[in-house]
Design a protein around this nucleic acid. Structure first.
Lengths: 197, 197
DNA sequence: ATCTTTGTTAACCAAACGGTTAAACTAAAA
DNA sequence: TTTTAGTTTAACCGTTTGGTTAACAAAGAT
C-alpha cells in the first residue's frame, strides 16, 4: 500500500467519524502511521484531502445506482434491485450515509458544485419511467418524485440515522444488521404493494 | 429577551448550521450581539451550551411524539397523527433532524447517555400495540420494529437529508415544502395500505 | 452612604490547529 | 561513486480557538 493510499484510508476513517470540522490533520497522520507533513506533501491541504475522500465515496455509489436506474427493467424490478444493491453496499460502508448528510448540511455550496460537476445519482430516467407506467395504468397516479423519495427514505434513513435508530429501538449491531438484511426484500415488496394498481 | 435567551437562540442557530465542532464561540457571541465572555459567564463552556441546545431541541419533539404513541387510538390513526404532526413540526424547524443525526454520529457516547437520562421518544407502546393488532388479524404479520422504522424513515428522511434531496430532485424551497405538505397525508395512506389485511 | 451581588466588557493567554521549511534519507540513474 | 530526483521527517510558525482575568457599571441590600 502506497503512502498516498495509507493517508487516503486514514482520512476516510477520521473524516467519516468526526466530519470535516471535527477531523484533525494530526489524527489522520497518526491513523496512517506517517508524519503530518506528508499529508500536505500528498494532498496539499485539508480541503483537498477531504474533497478526494468525498468524491471517492460518491463515485463508489453513483455508478451502481445509475446502472440500475437506466436499465430496461420494469420499475418494480428496479425498486427490488436498488434496495437490495444499496443496502448491501452500505452494510459494508455504514459510515457513508451520515457522512454525506452531515457535510451536505455543513457545506451546502461545496456540495451543490459537486452535484453539478461530478457524476451524481440521476433519478430522472426513473422519474420518466414512473410517469409512463402511470399513464399505462400499471401503477397508481402519484407524484413520481414522491415515489423516488419514498424509495430513498426507506433504504437510506436507517443507515443515515443509525445511532438514533439503534438508541430508540434498543438494537445492538447484530440485531441492526439482521433487520437491514430483512429490509433488502421487504422494503421493495411494501412499496410495490402500495403503488401497483 | 434576556441575555441568556439571546445567547441560547444564537447558539441554536450556529450549532444547527455548523455542528458542534464547526461552531465558533465568537460567532455565537456575534450572532447574539454580546461579548464572548458572556457565553462563559452564562453557560460555563461550549459543551454545556451545546447540551442545553441539544436537550431543548429534543424536548420540543419527544412529548408530542409520546403523546401520540400512548393515546388510545388505533395504529392506523396513530400513524396518521404522527406523520402529520411531525412534518408540521419540522417544516417550522427544518434544521433539527440533520443536526440531531450529525451529533449522534460525531458524539455517540454523549447521545447514548442522553437517551438513558432524558425523556426520549419511546416507541415501545406503539410496538406492543402493533403486536396485538397483528395477533387480532388487523394488520399483516411482520416485525413491529420494521414498521416503526418505516414510519420514521418516510417522515424524517426528507428533512434529515434535505440538502441532498433538493440537489438530486432539483427542488427549490417552495417545491420542497409543497412535497412535504403532500406527504403529511400520503405517507400514512401508503403505509396503512401496505400493512392492512 | 457603603457594601455586595449581578451583569458586561476589553484585553489577554495557553493550547491546539493547519500549514511550512529545510534538512535528512532513499534508491535509482549517470 | 556521484548525482539527482523523489520521500519522509523533526522542528518550527502564524493564526485561531476556547477559555480566563480584571476592571467596571448598575442595582439592591445593610
Amino acid at each position: 500500500m502506497t503512502t498516498e493510499e495509507k493517508i487516503f484510508n486514514a482520512a476516510r476513517i477520521v473524516f467519516q467519524k468526526k466530519g470535516f470540522a471535527g477531523a484533525r490533520m494530526q489524527e489522520i497522520a497518526d491513523e496512517a502511521g506517517i508524519n503530518k507533513a506528508m499529508l500536505h506533501y500528498c494532498f496539499k491541504n485539508k480541503q483537498l484531502l477531504f474533497e478526494a475522500v468525498f468524491k471517492n465515496a460518491f463515485s463508489q455509489l453513483a455508478p451502481q445506482i445509475n446502472a440500475i436506474f437506466s436499465s430496461n427493467e420494469t420499475i418494480f424490478e428496479k425498486i427490488k434491485q436498488f434496495t437490495h444493491s444499496y443496502i448491501s453496499f452500505v452494510i459494508v460502508n455504514p459510515f457513508l450515509p451520515p457522512f454525506v448528510i452531515q457535510e451536505m448540511n455543513n457545506n451546502p455550496e461545496f456540495v451543490k458544485n459537486f452535484f453539478k460537476n461530478e457524476n451524481s445519482p440521476n433519478p430522472y430516467l426513473l422519474i420518466d419511467q414512473i410517469k409512463k407506467e402511470i399513464d399505462l395504468g400499471i401503477i397508481k397516479p402519484m407524484n413520481p418524485k414522491q415515489l423516488v423519495l419514498d424509495i430513498f427514505s426507506m433504504t437510506v434513513f436507517p443507515f443515515a440515522a443509525q445511532m438514533m435508530v439503534k438508541g430508540i429501538l434498543h438494537l445492538d449491531d447484530a440485531e441492526f444488521n439482521l433487520m437491514m438484511e430483512e429490509r433488502k426484500t421487504t422494503i421493495a415488496e411494501q412499496i410495490i404493494n402500495s403503488i401497483k394498481k
